[in-house]
Nucleic acid binder design. Structure first.
Length: 350
DNA sequence: AAAATCCACAACCGCCACACG
DNA sequence: TCGTGTGGCGGTTGTGGATTT
C-alpha cells in the first residue's frame, strides 16, 4: 500500500550513482545475490534506499544488459510492439532480449515518438494523423515505408474487425480462465475462435496485421488482446521433442517447446486444427484481461505445448541458453545435441 | 566565448498488485 | 478480511553534455 517507506528516510543519498557505489553494489550482489532490496543497502554499506539500488541494478549494472544504439530491427520491433501493447514497457522489454523497459521507454520518448510524429503518424494510436475532416495532415502525404506499412495494417485491421463483428458471442462458450487472471465481464468468444482460425489458416506470414485486428475487436482499449499470438513467430523456432514437431498449420516455422505433462481438460475452447500432422491436436485459446494464452495438447503423446507471455517462458528459456543464442538461429542439430536435454532435465522452464 | 537551448538518458516519484502474517 | 511490506511499473524530472544563438 502506498509508497515504500524506505525512500522517505532522511540521510539517504539521491541522484547519480558514483563508480564507487556501483562497484559496491555490484560486488555485494555478485557475492550474495540481492535478496531483499529493502535490506540490501545496509548490508552492502550503501547510503541508498533499496528501491534506488534495485533500479540501478536492473537498469544499469545487471551483466545481461545490452547497451548502446538500438538496431533497426530492434526499433522496428519496438514500434510493432507498441502498436500492440501501448506503453507497457516491461512487456515490450520482454521481447527485446537484454534491453530494459526504462531504456526502451527512453528510446521511444526521445527518438521513435518524434520520428513517427514527423511522418504524420500519431505515436499513440499508430494511425495516420488527420485533420478535423478526416483528411491527411500536411505530413501525411509523404508517408515512409513504415507509414505505408501502418496503413496496410490498418486496412487489414478494419477488414478483420468487420468479419469478426459478423459473429456473435455464444454465451455457452464461457471460458474458464486460469487462476490469477482477471476475467473480463464479457468475452467475444467466437471472435476469439475466428481469430485463432484465421491465424492458423493464414499462409502468407502476414500475421501481424491479423493480430492487431483482433486487438481492437471491441474498442480501442479492449481488454482482449491477441498480441501474444504470433509475436513469437520469429522467436519460437525451437523444435519440440520426438514426433511432436507439428507446427501450427500455415506457419511451418513455428515449432514449439514441449514438456511431458498430462493432458489438461480445462480452460478450453477447443479448436481442432485441421491439417496438423501427428494426430490429436487441440488448440486452446484462453483470453484473459491482458493477453491470450495458447495451449496445444497432443493427446496421443501426452505432451503439452504451451506458451504464455505473462509467465515469461521465453525469458526463462533465454536465461537457460548458453551465450547469446538467438532463437532464430537454433538449428535442429543444436536442438538434438543440447536443448532437448536441457528441456527434459528442467521441468520449470515453463 | 558565453549564454541559451536542446537532447538523451539516468534516476526518482507515486501508484498498484501481491504476498504474508 | 485487513494491514503492512515489498517489488514492479509507467510517468516524470533532473542532470550533464552537445549544439545553437
Amino acid at each position: 500500500m502506498g509508497r515504500s517507506p524506505c525512500c522517505e528516510k532522511v540521510g539517504l543519498k539521491k541522484g547519480p550513482w558514483t563508480p564507487e557505489e556501483d562497484k559496491q553494489l555490484l560486488a555485494y550482489i555478485e557475492e550474495n545475490g540481492h535478496g531483499s532490496w529493502h535490506a540490501l543497502p545496509a548490508k552492502a554499506g550503501l547510503q541508498r534506499c533499496g528501491k534506488s539500488c534495485r533500479l540501478r541494478w536492473t537498469n544499469y549494472l545487471r551483466p545481461d544488459i545490452k547497451r548502446g544504439k538500438f538496431s533497426q530491427q530492434e526499433e522496428q520491433t519496438i514500434i510493432q510492439l507498441h502498436a500492440l501493447l501501448g506503453n507497457r514497457w516491461s512487456a515490450i522489454a520482454n521481447h527485446l532480449p537484454k534491453r530494459t523497459d526504462n531504456e526502451i521507454k527512453n528510446y521511444w520518448n526521445t527518438h521513435i515518438k518524434k520520428r513517427l510524429a514527423k511522418m504524420g503518424i500519431d505515436p499513440v494510436t499508430h494511425k495516420p494523423n488527420t485533420d478535423a475532416l478526416g483528411c491527411p495532415t500536411k505530413n501525411s502525404p509523404n508517408l515512409s515505408h513504415i507509414a505505408q506499412w501502418e496503413s496496410a495494417r490498418l486496412e487489414a485491421e478494419a477488414r478483420l474487425v468487420r468479419e469478426s463483428k459478423l459473429l456473435q458471442c455464444n454465451s455457452s462458450n464461457t471460458l474458464k480462465l486460469p487462476k490469477n487472471r482477471a476475467q473480463p465481464s464479457s468475452l467475444p468468444c467466437l471472435d476469439v475462435l475466428k481469430a485463432w482460425q484465421s491465424l492458423c489458416n493464414n499462409n502468407n506470414n502476414n500475421m501481424y496485421g491479423t493480430m492487431i485486428a483482433m486487438d481492437d475487436l471491441e474498442s480501442p482499449t479492449s481488454t482482449l488482446n491477441f498480441h501474444d499470438i504470433g509475436l513469437y513467430k520469429e522467436n519460437l523456432v525451437l523444435p519440440s521433442t520426438s514426433a511432436t514437431t507439428t507446427c501450427v498449420p500455415g506457419h511451418k516455422s513455428w515449432k514449439y517447446f514441449a514438456k511431458q505433462k498430462n493432458p489438461v481438460e480445462e480452460n478450453n475452447i477447443t479448436v481442432p486444427v485441421s491439417g496438423s500432422e501427428g494426430g490429436s491436436w487441440i488448440e486452446s485459446v484462453v483470453p484473459s484481461l491482458n493477453n491470450v494464452v495458447v495451449e496445444a495438447h497432443h493427446l496421443n503423446n501426452d505432451v503439452e505445448l504451451f506458451y504464455d507471455d505473462d509467465d515469461q517462458n521465453y525469458a526463462n528459456m533465454n536465461d537457460k541458453l548458453a551465450g547469446d543464442v538467438n532463437f532464430e538461429e537454433i538449428s535442429q542439430s543444436y536442438w538434438d545435441s543440447t536443448l532437448v536435454n536441457l528441456v527434459n532435465s528442467d521441468p520449470y522452464l515453463f
